[in-house]
């Protein structure tokens, strides 16, 4: 029970494999998430970044049991949600009230045949949160107000809304059950630039007002840095680095994080001209047949024999800064951190 005060969310060695053809001995699996561990404190935002197919979305969905996890343990506010080793699985219904998700595509994640009021109200019905129709209606209007929409919107259908407004509906739906923890799965990447800032600010306001805890998944590191307290970087199903947001972006230790950061185009012409990009060669390998040892080694400039033989351990090199790399040493990390301090 000591975990209760310290870490609101504890994820240990999460594994999520999906079958990918083959039979018997030859059965193949997509190793979408392989041995990922992290913790999130109450009221904190953990950002998760990585390229498509790195398993960031799958991580979020596995925690909510939208998939059956292949391995690992997930403790939510002191309660074990699942522990695959011990075969403990919690009944999810009461926890669905506490954990919610906002999906990436506001065009696909709202039922086109339901009014916005019913979309938001569905969760209220499922969990019997309203005593009568009047109360249900009031709750819906209150939720729509919270996300910057108004009562007239309740009777409209999703197609009548713009992308930004739809995403607000998606957020209102997640808030309907008064959750503590929300998985935000690329909630702004389908929106226009001028609208993104509105939605990001709303996420921040809601967190402050309602004391929410976020797992914020996105591929855009600038956005993730803006909203997160700490950031985890994933590559091909594994977590390669995790550190406080500013430390990670200023002093990346893992070679992958370094190149990821240098690849981001800076919206500042003078800096863009002087910036030297570390351009990675080649493509991300297939997660069905990942490289042995360190999964990044096929594209890494520092890769050696050792990287092919054994997978580096994901360890806390400096307090609060986790890295999984054979070549990053404590001295190197300290030197880099001191330089950028």
């Amino acid at each position: 029970m000591t975990e209760k005060n310290e870490d609101f969310i504890v994820v240990e060695h999460l594994k999520q494999y999906f079958p990918a053809g083959g039979h018997g001995k030859n059965k193949k699996y997509v190793q979408a998430v392989d041995d990922v561990s992290f913790t999130i404190k109450k009221g904190e935002t953990l950002g998760l970044v990585g390229e498509s197919g790195c398993g960031k979305t799958t991580t979020g969905r596995s925690l909510l049991r939208l998939y059956e996890p292949t391995g690992g343990r997930f403790v939510f506010d002191g309660d074990v949600i699942f522990d695959v080793e011990k075969k403990e699985y919690a009944n999810m219904l009461p926890y669905r009230k506490r954990m919610q998700i906002v999906f990436q595509d506001p065009y696909a994640s709202l039922d086109p045949r339901m009014t916005v009021g019913d979309i938001v109200g569905e969760a209220i019905d499922t969990h019997h949160l309203a005593k009568n129709d009047k109360e249900r209606y009031d709750m819906i209007i209150e939720l729509l107000r919270k996300v910057g929409l108004n009562s007239e919107h309740a009777n409209r259908y999703p197609h009548e809304f713009s992308g930004g407004q739809r995403q607000r509906v998606g957020i209102a739906r997640a808030l309907a059950v008064n959750p503590d923890f929300i998985v935000c799965d690329e909630p702004i990447s389908a929106l226009d630039v001028s609208i993104q800032a509105q939605v990001i600010n709303m996420f921040e306001d809601l967190q402050r007002d309602l004391g929410l805890t976020y797992l914020f998944i996105a591929h855009d590191l600038s956005v993730v840095k803006h909203i997160s307290d700490r950031i985890g970087v994933m590559y091909l199903g594994r977590m390669v680095e995790l550190a406080p947001a500013n430390e990670l972006t200023n002093t990346p230790l893992h070679p992958y994080t370094e190149s990821l950061i240098s690849a981001i185009p800076v919206a500042d012409p003078i800096k863009a001209r002087t910036n030297k990009r570390i351009v990675l060669e080649g493509d991300v390998p297939s997660p069905v047949n990942p490289p042995s040892g360190c999964r990044f080694r096929t594209r890494c400039s520092r890769a050696t024999e050792k990287c092919a033989q054994s997978a580096p351990e994901f360890k806390e090199l400096v307090p609060g800064h986790f890295v999984a790399c054979h070549h990053v040493t404590l001295e190197e990390a300290q030197k880099k951190l001191a330089k950028n301090d």
């Binding site: 800032a197 600038s222 840095k225 803006h226 919206a267």
Partner: peptide, 15 residues
Amino acid sequence: SIPRLDTDEHQRLIP
């Protein structure tokens, strides 16, 4: 309105 990677202070975005 775009979040920047090159500042450490948390400034609220102006949408």
